[in-house]
Design a binder for these strands. Structure first.
Lengths: 178, 178
DNA sequence: GCGAGTGTTCAATCAGGCTGAACGATTCGT
DNA sequence: ACGAATCGTTCAGCCTGATTGAACACTCGC
């Protein structure tokens, strides 16, 4: 799992076990053992390996990404996802992976929820048409078509439509939270 | 750095050092030491802590998120970012964090690059207007306004405009790759 | 005052990460 | 066909350093 990741990175670079070991100042045996999951390396060794492989440490722990090549979602056949509050969300992304992109539609007077929500993610909203009122941690901002905003989703937030026409926006979230 | 992350997660959950230690079946001393960066825990201990904190292991190594509350980017004053090939990109997101959202504009006959690019990320493009030809790992798809596509950015890919009008699209990428 | 909680420090221990050496399989050049 | 040089792997054993339990100083209610 973690070993497989290291092996993949090493082979990607065409390095032999010994070469990598030398670059990381560890023994070849260690590299072999770690890659095969026989031994849990120390953090120190991992740091050296990560440096030798020229990747940030946390990359070694990254979940294996979902394998999808190219997913196309036609405007006509989008899938509707959960409807928190008054917002109608349809999915623009594939639904797998760590990136979720949705289209949100909010009718005049509507709101995403009565109480602001909070979840561990990062999001960015781009207004396509209409006017959107964003509330984040008590602060408010009004977005017109073409405007965008981004924030840490852990801060309590919600969307409102205080205008008199339908608001449409593209919402990007990572990682997905529902 | 790693310790700080653990401490933050623990405090977020209102757990005391002892409570977390108990939940992770390690000693309180260890938690304290690790949080203060006094020593490197073993991977096994880290796994237990991650489980007790209910986060994936690699979260403990995640870069500390940039602290921004609410960043608004007005349509009028977007910042232009690098221009790979013929695509003009302007930034819609804040520019910090792991989520990057851009608006791309591609004139007729233009292309993002002559050779397909590859970078370790995930991306999703939503066509706002015009027609966009997407090429991923040799496969091609034509997107009209409202259509979208998503794929693993590690697969070689590029965008082309084979239509006769300007193509505008919203591009979400995580993590940012330039 | 006491008791229960907080986070922290430190000596001592013992698990386990790491190494060096030897292994069998390959792939060279000759 | 044969060393020579690589490849990745295995294993016993050393020795570091992660882990622990106990004691620390502190703040809060009662």
């Amino acid at each position: 799992m973690l070993g497989g990741r290291i092996r993949a990175l090493r082979e990607e670079r065409g390095l032999s076990v010994r070469r990598l070991a030398a670059a990381a100042s560890v023994s070849p045996a260690l590299v072999s053992q770690v890659e095969r999951g026989i031994n849990d390396p120390s953090l120190d060794s991992l740091r050296r390996l990560a440096e030798a492989l020229d990747v940030p440490l946390f990359d070694l722990f990254a979940e294996p990404r979902e394998e999808h090549d190219l997913t196309v979602v036609r405007a006509a056949d989008r899938i509707e996802v959960g409807t928190p509050g008054d917002v109608r969300y349809t999915r623009l992304s594939s639904g797998s992976g760590v990136l979720e992109v949705l289209e949100g539609v909010l009718e005049p007077g509507g709101r995403s929820s009565s109480e602001p929500w909070s979840h561990p993610a990062e999001e960015c909203a781009v207004v396509t048409s209409g006017r959107l009122l964003v509330e984040v941690a008590g602060r408010r901002a009004t977005l017109e078509a073409g405007d965008s905003c981004s924030f840490d989703s852990r801060r309590p937030h919600r969307y409102l439509n205080d205008g008199d026409e339908r608001a449409v926006f593209v919402l990007s979230v990572t990682p997905p939270s529902w």
